[in-house]
Write a protein that binds this DNA or RNA. Structure first.
Length: 524
RNA sequence: GGCGCAUUCGUCUAGCGGCCUAGGACACCGCCCUCUCAAGGCGGAGAUCAGGGGUUCGAAUCCCCUAUGCGCUACCA
């Protein structure tokens, strides 16, 4: 009885994600075009989409996802990065409603094209006394930091220009000295804000710095740009990485100084590398393109990402994106970071290939990999490719055995190519059988082969089992050399369907080759 | 160093005061199925819930401290 009535509300109780009086939820994914789409970025975008298009819409709200390019750091721009980013998102099936390519009511959606908004805001802040011009040179800042470090003090700007008189400022301006604009952080008191996943977070103002909001090249820093744009684009929920928590107080103060309403913050957890640090190429793959090239399905990748830091019930493992849209709630997202586990991703990928896509789909997806590897001739990467029927047949047999699409060229080669890769003749000799006896087995097979109808699986099996009896060996001892002769390897799908797919003509030729190979082998 | 966030099997997680002698999944091991390899089925091992203090009749669940990990500490985002 005492449990519910006397327990005080927990300080960490999650705030409401979508206030009842809010009728539109607007979120944004705001990458910097400094490279390819990182798996962590993809996860952030996934949360945006699941929240706006899933949770918000289920609650009867309008849910809008915005793609905004944050290219205020002119030094780190990478050519083609924006297109790259969008391509990665499209491949994953993560869609946005407003963005640089599709436009929208609050464009442009590229920060470098929104300069005047930031300058205006910075100007307003300077005029209202919330920000000031700082003429300190990079050399002086460097010097200050070094001194602080030497004396064991925390490094940071010493607010040298914070109290410059109007005359002093004017003089420097007249002299043409370059300057940045810094935000005047309150010197005492505290700044608090609510994080959707963590509850209230409090910072003591005397520990915070006067950060730069407008750089000397006239471009804003992230802090100013993000606040201005989020406000002007009417963003209701700021979902981003946890690395932004320490600067969130600045953003909170910026909103207050500008007199704008704050959005709701949700700092989504990071993906860690198995070794502890950041996930990078060193761990196999880091960008979406890497995963795509490595043969992962977008469905599996999204499924995996969803399971990292979120779960519906702790039991369900397989989710289509539609499932996620139907069930995702940010309230169930964890605040703690998670470690990337390649094994689990691989398992999910195989689950998807084995059980959740059709044979036709598999064939189509495998096609580009086969073409790239030269297993089949170049052509359209869809059902109109001349070899599609063959690929489809191989795909049907290998569906339960493919973990990554990249395995297809190797696994399918004996179906799709006339020539077998060279293999060791010793493989033709089954366990507990002498090489000479193995030769007898294959010769017997070669003799019955012409009269077999390989399309009749049961009859073929019956005949070959009978043959094993006649030869006095176990079925398996006869089947293995046939498998090796037909495929060049000891592992394959079921023998009879494999023979059927390879075709009688090629099987006969390959068995003959195997016999020759074995003769040569035992002669030595 | 300062500030902040996080902390349940090796990994991803369930768990919101009694149902927990802590459940599921990956990986691992064994068995079954079987012409091989997979897939599939069954089972096993694996977490004194980071440690220590409280609160409570009762704590993985609430509070405090410590430890550890990670992040930030740029005119990068």
């Amino acid at each position: 009885m005492s449990d519910t009535s006397t327990t005080t509300a927990r300080a960490t109780d999650h705030p409401v994600a979508i206030p009842a009086d809010m009728d539109e939820v607007r979120v944004r994914f705001a990458p910097s075009p400094t490279g390819s789409l990182h798996i962590g970025g993809a996860k952030q975008m996934m949360y945006d989409v699941l929240f706006a298009h899933g949770e918000a819409r289920r609650a009867g709200k309008q849910g809008t996802v915005i793609l905004r390019i944050e290219d205020t750091d002119r030094k780190r721009l990478v050519e083609g990065a924006v297109e790259n980013l969008m391509e990665g998102l499209r491949w994953l099936g993560l869609a946005w409603d407003e963005g640089p390519d599709v436009g929208g009511p609050y464009g442009p959606y590229v920060q470098s094209e929104r300069q005047h908004h930031y300058r205006e805001a910075a100007e307003r802040l300077v005029v209202s006394g919330h920000a000031y011009r700082c003429f300190c040179t990079p050399e002086r800042l460097q010097q200050v930091r070094e001194n602080q470090q030497k004396r064991g003090l925390p490094p940071g700007y010493d607010r040298h220009c914070r109290n410059l008189s109007a005359d002093e400022v004017q003089a420097k301006l007249d002299a043409g000295e370059p300057f940045v604009v810094r935000f005047k952080m309150p010197l005492d008191g505290e700044t608090r804000f609510t994080d959707l996943l963590r509850g209230e977070i409090v910072y003591q103002n005397d520990k915070l710095e006067d950060l730069v909001i407008l750089k000397s090249d006239g471009f804003p820093t992230y802090h100013l740009a993000v606040v201005v744009d989020d406000h002007e684009m009417k963003i209701t929920h700021v979902m981003r990485g946890p690395e932004w928590i320490p600067t969130a107080p600045l953003h909170v103060q910026l909103y207050a100084a500008l007199g704008w309403e704050m959005p709701i913050f949700a700092h989504m957890p990071l993906i860690l590398a198995p070794t502890g640090g950041k996930l990078s190429k060193r761990h196999g793959a880091a960008s979406i393109q890497d995963f795509r090239d490595a043969g992962y399905l977008p469905e599996a990748l999204l499924n995996y990402l969803a399971l990292l830091g979120w779960s519906l019930d702790g039991k369900t493992e397989i989710y289509t994106f539609a499932d996620l849209l139907e069930h995702f709630t940010i309230e169930r997202a964890s605040a703690s970071p998670s470690t990337f586990d390649r094994d689990k991703l691989d398992w999910l990928n195989q689950q998807w290939i084995n059980h959740h896509i059709t044979v036709d789909d598999l064939a189509a997806r495998v096609l580009p990999f086969l073409i790239k590897a030269g297993t089949i001739e170049p052509g359209p990467a869809d059902a109109s490719h001349p070899r599609f029927a063959d690929v489809r047949e191989a795909a049907a047999l290998l569906k339960d055995r493919i973990k990554l699409l990249t395995e297809a060229p190797d696994l399918m080669s004996y179906f799709l190519r006339d020539e077998l890769e060279d293999y060791d003749a010793a493989l033709l000799v089954p366990k507990k059988v002498e090489p000479a006896a193995a030769l007898t087995l294959l010769e017997a097979v070669a003799k019955v082969l012409p009269e077999l109808d390989l399309n009749d699986l049961e009859a073929t099996e019956a005949r070959l089992r009978a043959l094993a009896d006649e030869l006095g060996v176990k079925a398996g001892q006869l089947f293995m050399p046939i498998r090796v002769a037909a495929t060049g390897r000891t592992q394959s799908p079921g023998l009879f369907e494999t023979l059927r797919a390879i075709g009688k003509e090629r099987v006969i030729a390959r068995v003959d080759d195997a016999i020759a190979k074995l003769r040569e082998h035992s002669a030595r």
